[in-house]
């Protein structure tokens, strides 16, 4: 059983620098996961937690702030894991495309805009809520010999 992701919004919405994850989440490769599903070799990765990283520019001459919110999903270390795979799910179905990653965090730009400062929080909340109906992510571990763990429960992108 996978622990439910817990909200851990570490950065309040202000002019925060991106948390140095960008380099570590570079996608190593993608592959297509069609065909019969192999028997999982262990439980799903645990300790899934989410947070938001926010970036914003100072107000422009027109008085608007350009802002971006990144949704970050991290999970615990997995004994024997050589790497991890993630896949996306939409309201239409599960994508057959898998992404291979060596680190234990995923960072996705989930909302962006240019708004008067007083409107930023409202627009950000609306766009993040709209995002939750669209996309979710699952993760599994790849062990020595190519064996795979169970998939984690899907976590909605934009959820905190």
């Amino acid at each position: 059983m996978v622990a439910r992701p817990t909200r851990r919004r570490t950065v309040p919405f202000l002019f925060a620098a991106a948390a140095g994850l960008a380099a570590s989440v570079a996608l190593a490769a993608t592959l297509t996961g069609r065909g019969p599903a192999p028997t999982p070799s262990g439980p799903a990765p645990a300790g899934l937690v989410t947070r938001f990283d926010d970036e914003a520019s100072p107000p422009s001459a027109a008085g608007e702030v350009s802002w971006r919110t990144f949704w970050v999903l991290c999970w615990d270390a997995y004994a024997g894991a050589d790497r991890f795979e993630t896949r996306t799910l939409t309201g239409e179905g599960a994508s057959p495309r898998l992404t291979v990653r060596r680190d234990r965090c995923l960072r996705i730009e989930a909302a962006a805009g240019a708004s008067p400062p007083a409107a930023v929080d409202r627009e950000r909340a609306l766009l993040l809520a709209s995002q939750q109906g669209q996309l979710a992510v699952q993760v599994r571990a790849v062990l020595a010999g190519g064996h795979r763990s169970e998939w984690s429960q899907p976590v909605a992108v934009g959820s905190g």
Partner: peptide, 21 residues
């Protein structure tokens, strides 16, 4: 509003599912 990385992943996922359909 701007299209985001999450939107692009969503659209790509929908394409892949419907190609499978």
């Amino acid at each position: 509003a701007p299209v985001t990385e999450a939107d692009r992943l969503f659209m790509q996922g929908v394409i892949e599912v419907n190609v499978a359909f």
